[in-house]
């Protein structure tokens, strides 16, 4: 639906087919309006203000590298294979940016991908992914396993 509207405005007016976005590292990027329309934060601003598209819209929380990844993902209609090439930091960067830009489809897509990545992984892998420092003492950790035996019972047998 958003795409259709993008295509319509593209057909109506050649000038509005791209919007310039200014990333946190100062890069100006021209982005197709159909992609920009998936970014609720930019879309609502453009619609309310009927803004001049040549003035860059600032995205102080999104780097040019992250924006590149997002544009590629949307262009490729959320291709799993492309996303599998992302590093853990890139996955998290895209997640945080999708949340900031309020891109619902991308947010769910990337959250699902991260959930799939973490499923059935070791505690150490997950700590590593989220940069978590284990602040439990071995005694505390044993205590948690004991009080939550209703979920850890099968794990102990592995």
């Amino acid at each position: 639906m958003q795409k259709t509207e993008g295509e319509e405005s593209k057909a109506e007016n050649e000038e509005v087919k791209q919007v310039t976005l200014m990333t946190s590292d100062g890069v100006k990027m021209k982005v197709e309006i159909s992609i920009v329309y998936e970014m609720e934060i930019v879309r609502s601003f453009i619609e309310v203000n009927d803004a001049d598209h040549s003035v860059p819209f600032p995205l102080p929380n999104v780097s040019s590298h992250t924006l590149d990844l997002i544009i590629e993902l949307v262009k490729n209609e959320y291709d799993d294979e492309f996303m599998k090439t992302f590093s853990h930091d890139e996955l998290k960067e895209v997640l945080v940016a999708a949340n900031y830009l309020n891109m619902k489809t991308l947010l769910d897509f990337i959250a699902t991908a991260i959930a799939n990545l973490l499923e059935k992984k070791s505690v150490e892998f997950i700590r590593n992914f989220f940069n978590i420092v284990n602040d439990f003492t071995p005694e505390e950790e044993a205590e948690i396993r004991k009080t939550n035996e209703w979920v850890f019972q099968d794990l102990d047998e592995d």
């Binding site: 959930a115 978590i132 420092v133 284990n134």
Partner: peptide, 23 residues
């Protein structure tokens, strides 16, 4: 809210097991 969103796509047993990660 982003951690909630990721865990929402996980099986509940795996989600509960994250209690062991840190305080």
């Amino acid at each position: 809210e982003l951690i909630h969103r990721i865990l929402s796509f996980l099986d509940a047993a795996a989600a509960v097991k994250t209690c062991i990660l840190s305080k």
